Amino acid sequence: MSVRILALVGSLRTGSTNSQLAVAAVKHAPGGVTIEVFEELGDVPFYNQDIDTEAGLPAAARRLRTATGRADALLLFSPEYNGTIPAVLKNAIDWLSRPYGSGAISGKPVAVVGAALGQYGGVWAQDEARKAVGIAGGAVVEDAKLSIPASLARFSKTHPADDEEVVAGLIQVIERLAAQAAQVAPASA
């Protein structure tokens, strides 16, 4: 079975360590797993129920929901901003949670990983992301975690895709997420 994973990166900065981490995940995805990075999170407006209508739904929000619907699982890459989840990632979760009870994220396996400047690798933000995803209806894969501390120093000369320890951790998360997705009815069925 082929598993499709949609990656959402909570940093919009070009060259961010979390964007690089997503590139590493795409490059090192195990056989039978395809990872697609959703590149338009910055285009998705803040969630507003007034525009969440068939006639008014913003195009980027529609594309986010469609891409999520096609995916078998989600892999979120979260930096830590002021001790919590970045607004752009939280906003994506809000859009995917609607309509309540049947949003695109409903029942979909989700793992959260990330890199951050601090000594704990963004674990607070990642925990907040898991909390938000779970409340939104996603099926959080709690044992699929990867937190990379001191990311700027660690990746100043080495891309995450070339860091053996990081690649091994990513592969472990992806395999766990793919296994969970395989237990759920695939989106492509």
Score class of each variant (00 low, 15 high):
residue 1 M to D: 00
residue 2 S to R: 06
residue 4 R to Y: 02
residue 7 A to K: 10
residue 8 L to E: 13
residue 8 L to C: 12
residue 8 L to N: 12
residue 9 V to C: 11
residue 9 V to G: 09
residue 15 G to S: 03
residue 15 G to W: 02
residue 16 S to N: 07
residue 25 A to T: 01
residue 26 V to A: 02
residue 26 V to Q: 05
residue 26 V to W: 02
residue 27 K to Q: 07
residue 27 K to Y: 03
residue 32 G to C: 00
residue 33 V to R: 05
residue 34 T to W: 04
residue 34 T to S: 06
residue 34 T to A: 00
residue 35 I to Y: 01
residue 36 E to C: 11
residue 37 V to P: 00
residue 42 G to E: 02
residue 43 D to M: 11
residue 44 V to K: 01
residue 44 V to E: 02
residue 45 P to A: 09
residue 45 P to K: 08
residue 45 P to D: 02
residue 46 F to G: 15
residue 47 Y to T: 11
residue 47 Y to Q: 14
residue 48 N to C: 14
residue 49 Q to K: 14
residue 50 D to A: 15
residue 52 D to M: 14
residue 55 A to R: 08
residue 56 G to M: 08
residue 58 P to T: 05
residue 60 A to W: 07
residue 65 R to Y: 05
residue 66 T to V: 15
residue 68 T to G: 12
residue 71 A to T: 09
residue 72 D to C: 07
residue 72 D to S: 10
residue 73 A to Y: 03
residue 75 L to R: 07
residue 75 L to A: 09
residue 77 F to Q: 09
residue 78 S to D: 02
residue 79 P to Y: 07
residue 82 N to K: 01
residue 85 I to R: 04
residue 85 I to A: 13
residue 91 N to Y: 11
residue 94 D to K: 12
residue 95 W to V: 01
residue 95 W to H: 04
residue 98 R to E: 10
residue 110 V to I: 13
residue 112 V to G: 01
residue 112 V to S: 06
residue 115 A to L: 00
residue 123 V to H: 04
residue 123 V to M: 11
residue 124 W to R: 15
residue 126 Q to S: 06
residue 127 D to S: 08
residue 129 A to L: 12
residue 129 A to C: 15
residue 130 R to T: 01
residue 131 K to G: 14
residue 132 A to C: 10
residue 133 V to F: 15
residue 134 G to P: 06
residue 135 I to M: 13
residue 136 A to W: 07
residue 136 A to T: 04
residue 138 G to A: 08
residue 138 G to C: 12
residue 139 A to E: 10
residue 141 V to D: 06
residue 142 E to P: 07
residue 145 K to G: 09
residue 145 K to I: 06
residue 146 L to V: 00
residue 154 R to W: 02
residue 154 R to L: 11
residue 156 S to G: 00
residue 156 S to R: 05
residue 156 S to Q: 10
residue 165 E to W: 07
residue 166 V to E: 04
residue 166 V to A: 04
residue 169 G to K: 01
residue 170 L to M: 12
residue 170 L to C: 08
residue 172 Q to C: 14
residue 172 Q to Y: 13
residue 177 L to R: 01
residue 178 A to P: 02
residue 179 A to Q: 09
residue 181 A to H: 06
residue 184 V to C: 02
residue 185 A to C: 08
residue 186 P to T: 05
residue 187 A to P: 11
residue 188 S to I: 05
residue 188 S to V: 11
residue 189 A to L: 13
